[in-house]
Protein backbone atom coordinates (compact mmCIF):
# COMPACT_ATOMS: atom_id res chain seq x y z
CA UNK A 1 0.00 0.00 0.00
CA UNK A 2 1.33 3.33 -0.95
CA UNK A 3 1.15 6.24 1.40
CA UNK A 4 -1.02 9.13 0.37
CA UNK A 5 1.59 11.60 1.44
CA UNK A 6 4.59 10.05 -0.29
CA UNK A 7 6.67 12.52 -2.28
CA UNK A 8 6.26 12.83 -6.02
CA UNK A 9 8.68 10.91 -8.18
CA UNK A 10 10.73 13.44 -10.12
CA UNK A 11 10.92 12.51 -13.73
CA UNK A 12 12.36 14.73 -16.40
CA UNK A 13 10.04 14.37 -19.27
CA UNK A 14 10.92 14.62 -22.91
CA UNK A 15 7.92 16.83 -23.55
CA UNK A 16 9.34 19.38 -21.14
CA UNK A 17 12.97 19.41 -22.11
CA UNK A 18 12.47 18.51 -25.78
CA UNK A 19 11.54 21.98 -27.01
CA UNK A 20 14.11 23.68 -24.76
CA UNK A 21 16.80 21.32 -26.00
CA UNK A 22 15.84 21.99 -29.61
CA UNK A 23 16.01 25.73 -29.05
CA UNK A 24 19.42 25.51 -27.37
CA UNK A 25 20.77 23.35 -30.19
CA UNK A 26 19.51 25.82 -32.76
CA UNK A 27 21.15 28.72 -30.96
CA UNK A 28 24.46 26.86 -30.71
CA UNK A 29 24.29 25.83 -34.34
CA UNK A 30 23.51 29.42 -35.32
CA UNK A 31 26.35 30.85 -33.27
CA UNK A 32 28.81 28.40 -34.84
CA UNK A 33 27.66 29.06 -38.37
CA UNK A 34 27.50 32.81 -38.26
CA UNK A 35 29.26 35.09 -35.80
CA UNK A 36 26.60 37.77 -36.27
CA UNK A 37 23.95 35.38 -35.09
CA UNK A 38 24.18 36.28 -31.42
CA UNK A 39 24.70 39.95 -32.15
CA UNK A 40 22.22 42.42 -30.67
CA UNK A 41 20.79 43.31 -34.05
CA UNK A 42 20.04 39.79 -35.05
CA UNK A 43 18.62 38.85 -31.67
CA UNK A 44 16.23 41.80 -31.60
CA UNK A 45 15.36 41.11 -35.22
CA UNK A 46 14.44 37.51 -34.42
CA UNK A 47 12.42 38.54 -31.41
CA UNK A 48 10.58 41.27 -33.29
CA UNK A 49 9.73 38.91 -36.10
CA UNK A 50 8.49 36.38 -33.55
CA UNK A 51 6.27 38.95 -31.92
CA UNK A 52 3.30 38.88 -34.32
CA UNK A 53 2.96 35.13 -34.51
CA UNK A 54 3.92 34.95 -30.85
CA UNK A 55 1.17 37.26 -29.61
CA UNK A 56 -1.38 35.31 -31.64
CA UNK A 57 0.07 31.95 -30.56
CA UNK A 58 -0.40 32.84 -26.89
CA UNK A 59 -4.12 33.23 -27.57
CA UNK A 60 -4.10 30.08 -29.65
CA UNK A 61 -2.62 28.20 -26.69
CA UNK A 62 -5.78 28.89 -24.71
CA UNK A 63 -8.08 27.96 -27.56
CA UNK A 64 -6.30 24.67 -28.15
CA UNK A 65 -5.99 23.87 -24.46
CA UNK A 66 -9.75 24.20 -24.15
CA UNK A 67 -10.15 21.69 -26.94
CA UNK A 68 -10.76 24.18 -29.75
CA UNK A 69 -8.97 25.44 -32.83
CA UNK A 70 -8.92 28.66 -34.83
CA UNK A 71 -7.84 28.61 -38.45
CA UNK A 72 -9.00 32.14 -39.17
CA UNK A 73 -6.35 34.18 -37.35
CA UNK A 74 -4.15 34.87 -40.39
CA UNK A 75 -6.89 36.24 -42.59
CA UNK A 76 -8.47 37.91 -39.57
CA UNK A 77 -5.21 39.84 -39.15
CA UNK A 78 -5.23 40.78 -42.81
CA UNK A 79 -8.82 41.96 -42.62
CA UNK A 80 -8.21 43.97 -39.47
CA UNK A 81 -5.14 45.55 -41.05
CA UNK A 82 -7.14 46.50 -44.13
CA UNK A 83 -10.02 47.86 -42.09
CA UNK A 84 -7.73 49.84 -39.85
CA UNK A 85 -5.95 51.45 -42.79
CA UNK A 86 -9.23 52.33 -44.51
CA UNK A 87 -10.65 53.90 -41.38
CA UNK A 88 -7.52 55.92 -40.68
CA UNK A 89 -7.21 57.13 -44.26
CA UNK A 90 -10.84 58.17 -44.31
CA UNK A 91 -10.39 60.20 -41.15
CA UNK A 92 -7.43 62.19 -42.45
CA UNK A 93 -9.51 64.74 -44.43
CA UNK A 94 -11.69 65.63 -41.42
CA UNK A 95 -9.28 65.18 -38.50
CA UNK A 96 -5.93 65.75 -40.17
CA UNK A 97 -3.04 63.30 -40.07
CA UNK A 98 -2.31 63.19 -36.38
CA UNK A 99 -1.95 60.94 -33.36
CA UNK A 100 -5.74 60.89 -32.63
CA UNK A 101 -6.37 59.22 -35.96
CA UNK A 102 -3.83 56.54 -35.15
CA UNK A 103 -5.39 55.99 -31.76
CA UNK A 104 -8.78 55.61 -33.38
CA UNK A 105 -7.24 53.14 -35.82
CA UNK A 106 -5.86 51.12 -32.92
CA UNK A 107 -9.22 51.11 -31.20
CA UNK A 108 -10.82 49.91 -34.41
CA UNK A 109 -8.29 47.07 -34.61
CA UNK A 110 -8.96 45.98 -31.04
CA UNK A 111 -12.72 46.14 -31.45
CA UNK A 112 -12.67 44.36 -34.79
CA UNK A 113 -10.46 41.61 -33.33
CA UNK A 114 -12.69 41.19 -30.34
CA UNK A 115 -15.80 41.11 -32.52
CA UNK A 116 -14.31 38.61 -34.93
CA UNK A 117 -13.23 36.36 -32.07
CA UNK A 118 -16.64 36.60 -30.42
CA UNK A 119 -18.30 35.75 -33.69
CA UNK A 120 -16.22 32.59 -34.07
CA UNK A 121 -16.87 31.70 -30.46
CA UNK A 122 -20.61 32.27 -30.63
CA UNK A 123 -20.96 30.15 -33.74
CA UNK A 124 -18.97 27.38 -32.09
CA UNK A 125 -20.55 27.42 -28.65
CA UNK A 126 -24.12 28.56 -29.29
CA UNK A 127 -24.76 26.79 -32.56
CA UNK A 128 -22.56 23.86 -31.69
CA UNK A 129 -20.70 23.82 -35.00
CA UNK A 130 -17.29 22.19 -35.13
CA UNK A 131 -14.51 24.76 -34.52
CA UNK A 132 -12.63 23.50 -37.53
CA UNK A 133 -15.58 24.19 -39.84
CA UNK A 134 -16.50 27.58 -38.39
CA UNK A 135 -12.99 28.96 -38.53
CA UNK A 136 -12.28 27.43 -41.92
CA UNK A 137 -15.32 29.38 -43.08
CA UNK A 138 -14.35 32.63 -41.41
CA UNK A 139 -10.81 32.23 -42.71
CA UNK A 140 -12.17 32.29 -46.25
CA UNK A 141 -14.54 35.14 -45.49
CA UNK A 142 -11.93 37.50 -44.00
CA UNK A 143 -9.44 36.71 -46.71
CA UNK A 144 -11.91 37.55 -49.40
CA UNK A 145 -13.12 40.65 -47.54
CA UNK A 146 -9.63 42.12 -47.40
CA UNK A 147 -9.12 41.37 -51.09
CA UNK A 148 -12.39 43.14 -51.77
CA UNK A 149 -11.52 46.12 -49.57
CA UNK A 150 -8.21 46.43 -51.39
CA UNK A 151 -9.94 45.85 -54.68
CA UNK A 152 -7.54 43.05 -55.41
CA UNK A 153 -4.49 45.22 -54.82
CA UNK A 154 -2.84 46.83 -51.81
CA UNK A 155 -4.25 49.23 -49.25
CA UNK A 156 -1.64 51.79 -48.25
CA UNK A 157 -1.69 54.00 -45.21
CA UNK A 158 -1.63 57.75 -45.72
CA UNK A 159 2.00 58.83 -46.06
CA UNK A 160 2.07 61.30 -43.16
CA UNK A 161 0.29 58.87 -40.89
CA UNK A 162 2.75 56.21 -41.80
CA UNK A 163 5.73 58.15 -40.56
CA UNK A 164 3.84 59.05 -37.41
CA UNK A 165 2.90 55.44 -36.82
CA UNK A 166 6.23 53.84 -37.71
CA UNK A 167 7.84 54.22 -34.26
CA UNK A 168 5.34 51.67 -32.96
CA UNK A 169 7.20 49.04 -34.91
CA UNK A 170 10.71 50.50 -35.13
CA UNK A 171 10.89 52.49 -31.92
CA UNK A 172 11.21 51.31 -28.37
CA UNK A 173 12.98 51.85 -25.07
CA UNK A 174 16.54 50.87 -24.20
CA UNK A 175 17.00 49.51 -27.71
CA UNK A 176 14.16 47.05 -27.28
CA UNK A 177 11.44 47.64 -29.81
CA UNK A 178 7.78 47.91 -28.97
CA UNK A 179 6.71 44.63 -30.59
CA UNK A 180 9.14 42.77 -28.34
CA UNK A 181 7.91 44.60 -25.27
CA UNK A 182 4.27 43.96 -26.08
CA UNK A 183 5.04 40.32 -26.85
CA UNK A 184 6.81 39.93 -23.52
CA UNK A 185 3.92 41.50 -21.64
CA UNK A 186 1.40 39.26 -23.41
CA UNK A 187 3.48 36.19 -22.63
CA UNK A 188 3.85 37.00 -18.96
CA UNK A 189 0.15 37.67 -18.57
CA UNK A 190 -0.70 34.57 -20.59
CA UNK A 191 1.55 32.34 -18.53
CA UNK A 192 0.10 33.59 -15.27
CA UNK A 193 -3.46 33.26 -16.51
CA UNK A 194 -2.87 29.74 -17.77
CA UNK A 195 -1.00 28.58 -14.73
CA UNK A 196 -2.75 30.16 -11.83
CA UNK A 197 -6.18 31.47 -12.60
CA UNK A 198 -9.55 29.79 -12.58
CA UNK A 199 -9.87 30.57 -16.27
CA UNK A 200 -6.69 28.65 -17.11
CA UNK A 201 -7.78 25.71 -14.95
CA UNK A 202 -11.16 25.69 -16.60
CA UNK A 203 -9.63 25.69 -20.08
CA UNK A 204 -7.56 22.63 -19.22
CA UNK A 205 -10.53 20.91 -17.61
CA UNK A 206 -12.77 21.48 -20.60
CA UNK A 207 -10.08 20.31 -22.98
CA UNK A 208 -9.40 17.13 -21.07
CA UNK A 209 -13.04 16.15 -20.60
CA UNK A 210 -15.89 18.46 -21.41
CA UNK A 211 -18.43 16.23 -19.64
CA UNK A 212 -16.50 16.30 -16.40
CA UNK A 213 -16.21 20.07 -16.66
CA UNK A 214 -19.94 20.38 -17.20
CA UNK A 215 -20.77 18.08 -14.30
CA UNK A 216 -18.41 20.13 -12.16
CA UNK A 217 -20.48 23.27 -12.77
CA UNK A 218 -17.90 24.87 -15.02
CA UNK A 219 -19.51 27.33 -17.42
CA UNK A 220 -18.18 25.48 -20.39
CA UNK A 221 -19.64 27.63 -23.16
CA UNK A 222 -18.63 30.87 -21.58
CA UNK A 223 -15.05 29.77 -21.04
CA UNK A 224 -14.85 28.51 -24.63
CA UNK A 225 -16.29 31.76 -25.93
CA UNK A 226 -13.77 33.71 -23.89
CA UNK A 227 -10.85 31.80 -25.39
CA UNK A 228 -11.94 32.79 -28.90
CA UNK A 229 -12.64 36.36 -27.88
CA UNK A 230 -9.23 36.65 -26.22
CA UNK A 231 -7.57 35.24 -29.30
CA UNK A 232 -9.42 37.76 -31.48
CA UNK A 233 -8.28 40.58 -29.25
CA UNK A 234 -4.69 39.38 -29.44
CA UNK A 235 -4.93 39.22 -33.23
CA UNK A 236 -6.01 42.86 -33.05
CA UNK A 237 -2.97 43.70 -30.91
CA UNK A 238 -0.64 41.82 -33.24
CA UNK A 239 -2.08 43.71 -36.19
CA UNK A 240 -1.56 47.05 -34.44
CA UNK A 241 2.12 46.16 -34.15
CA UNK A 242 2.31 44.86 -37.68
CA UNK A 243 0.70 47.61 -39.75
CA UNK A 244 3.41 50.25 -39.14
CA UNK A 245 6.04 47.80 -40.41
CA UNK A 246 4.93 47.99 -44.03
CA UNK A 247 2.16 50.55 -43.77
CA UNK A 248 0.00 48.50 -46.07
CA UNK A 249 -2.27 45.50 -46.26
CA UNK A 250 -3.10 43.21 -49.13
CA UNK A 251 -4.66 39.84 -49.71
CA UNK A 252 -1.27 38.29 -48.92
CA UNK A 253 -1.01 39.84 -45.44
CA UNK A 254 -0.94 37.32 -42.62
CA UNK A 255 -0.75 34.44 -45.03
CA UNK A 256 -0.27 31.08 -43.18
CA UNK A 257 -0.02 32.79 -39.81
CA UNK A 258 -2.63 30.39 -38.50
CA UNK A 259 -0.46 27.44 -39.33
CA UNK A 260 2.62 28.97 -37.77
CA UNK A 261 0.71 29.87 -34.63
CA UNK A 262 -0.78 26.39 -34.30
CA UNK A 263 2.61 24.83 -35.02
CA UNK A 264 4.26 26.95 -32.36
CA UNK A 265 1.66 25.89 -29.82
CA UNK A 266 2.13 22.21 -30.59
CA UNK A 267 5.92 22.36 -30.70
CA UNK A 268 5.76 24.01 -27.30
CA UNK A 269 4.13 20.95 -25.82
CA UNK A 270 0.48 21.93 -25.68
CA UNK A 271 -1.66 18.92 -26.51
CA UNK A 272 -3.51 19.34 -29.81
CA UNK A 273 -6.54 17.47 -28.45
CA UNK A 274 -6.66 19.90 -25.55
CA UNK A 275 -6.49 19.42 -21.82
CA UNK A 276 -2.99 20.62 -21.26
CA UNK A 277 -1.30 23.82 -22.35
CA UNK A 278 1.68 25.91 -21.48
CA UNK A 279 2.36 29.40 -22.66
CA UNK A 280 6.11 29.39 -22.11
CA UNK A 281 6.28 26.34 -24.36
CA UNK A 282 4.50 28.26 -27.07
CA UNK A 283 7.09 31.02 -26.83
CA UNK A 284 9.81 28.45 -27.37
CA UNK A 285 7.85 27.05 -30.28
CA UNK A 286 7.61 30.47 -31.91
CA UNK A 287 11.32 31.13 -31.37
CA UNK A 288 12.23 27.77 -32.88
CA UNK A 289 10.18 28.45 -35.98
CA UNK A 290 11.57 31.96 -36.43
CA UNK A 291 15.14 30.85 -35.76
CA UNK A 292 14.99 28.20 -38.44
CA UNK A 293 14.00 30.81 -41.00
CA UNK A 294 16.63 33.20 -39.69
CA UNK A 295 19.39 30.60 -39.77
CA UNK A 296 18.60 29.59 -43.29
CA UNK A 297 18.83 33.21 -44.32
CA UNK A 298 22.12 33.83 -42.52
CA UNK A 299 23.90 30.76 -43.82
CA UNK A 300 23.99 29.33 -47.27
CA UNK A 301 24.17 25.83 -45.94
CA UNK A 302 20.62 24.95 -46.90
CA UNK A 303 18.40 26.84 -49.28
CA UNK A 304 15.96 29.19 -47.51
CA UNK A 305 13.31 27.77 -49.77
CA UNK A 306 13.46 24.61 -47.66
CA UNK A 307 12.31 26.58 -44.60
CA UNK A 308 8.81 25.16 -44.76
CA UNK A 309 10.07 21.60 -45.08
CA UNK A 310 12.25 21.88 -41.99
CA UNK A 311 9.50 23.52 -39.98
CA UNK A 312 7.14 20.77 -41.05
CA UNK A 313 9.57 18.07 -39.97
CA UNK A 314 9.94 19.71 -36.57
CA UNK A 315 6.20 19.84 -36.05
CA UNK A 316 5.86 16.14 -36.76
CA UNK A 317 8.79 15.40 -34.47
CA UNK A 318 7.22 17.43 -31.68
CA UNK A 319 4.01 15.44 -31.90
CA UNK A 320 5.91 12.15 -31.89
CA UNK A 321 7.73 13.24 -28.74
CA UNK A 322 4.42 14.18 -27.15
CA UNK A 323 3.03 10.76 -27.83
CA UNK A 324 6.05 9.04 -26.36
CA UNK A 325 5.70 11.15 -23.26
CA UNK A 326 2.22 9.75 -22.90
CA UNK A 327 2.93 6.12 -23.70
CA UNK A 328 5.75 5.64 -21.24
Amino acid sequence: MSDATAPAPRRIRMTVIGPILALVLLVIAGALMNPNFLGWDNVTNVLARSAFIGIIAVGMTFVITAGGLDLSVGSMAAFIAGLMILVMNSLVPSMGAGIPVILIGMAVALLAGLAAGLLNGILITRLGIEAFIVTLGSMGIYRSLVTWLADGGTLSLDFTLRSLYQPVYYGGVFGITWPIIVFAVVVVIGEVVMRSTAFGRHCAAIGSNEQVAKYSSVRVDRVRLMTYAALGLLVGIATIMYVPRLGSASSATGMLWELEAIAAVIIGGTVLKGGFGRVWGTVIGVLILTLIGNLLNLTDFVSPYLNGAIQGAIIVLAVVLQREGKAR
Partner: peptide, 26 residues
Protein backbone atom coordinates in the same frame (compact mmCIF):
# COMPACT_ATOMS: atom_id res chain seq x y z
CA UNK B 1 -18.34 12.50 -15.90
CA UNK B 2 -16.86 12.76 -12.48
CA UNK B 3 -13.11 13.06 -12.65
CA UNK B 4 -10.37 14.22 -14.98
CA UNK B 5 -8.41 10.99 -15.12
CA UNK B 6 -5.34 12.60 -16.65
CA UNK B 7 -4.99 15.25 -13.95
CA UNK B 8 -3.81 15.20 -10.39
CA UNK B 9 -5.76 14.90 -7.15
CA UNK B 10 -5.56 18.56 -6.31
CA UNK B 11 -6.89 19.86 -9.60
CA UNK B 12 -9.76 17.40 -9.47
CA UNK B 13 -10.60 18.12 -5.90
CA UNK B 14 -10.99 21.84 -6.36
CA UNK B 15 -12.50 21.95 -9.83
CA UNK B 16 -16.08 22.20 -8.70
CA UNK B 17 -15.49 24.80 -6.00
CA UNK B 18 -12.63 26.65 -7.63
CA UNK B 19 -14.08 30.05 -6.82
CA UNK B 20 -13.37 29.32 -3.16
CA UNK B 21 -9.67 29.29 -3.94
CA UNK B 22 -9.77 32.17 -6.36
CA UNK B 23 -8.11 35.29 -5.04
CA UNK B 24 -7.49 36.67 -8.52
CA UNK B 25 -4.92 33.96 -8.77
CA UNK B 26 -5.61 30.51 -7.42
Amino acid sequence: RGLLLGKGLRENLTLQALSKFDRGLI
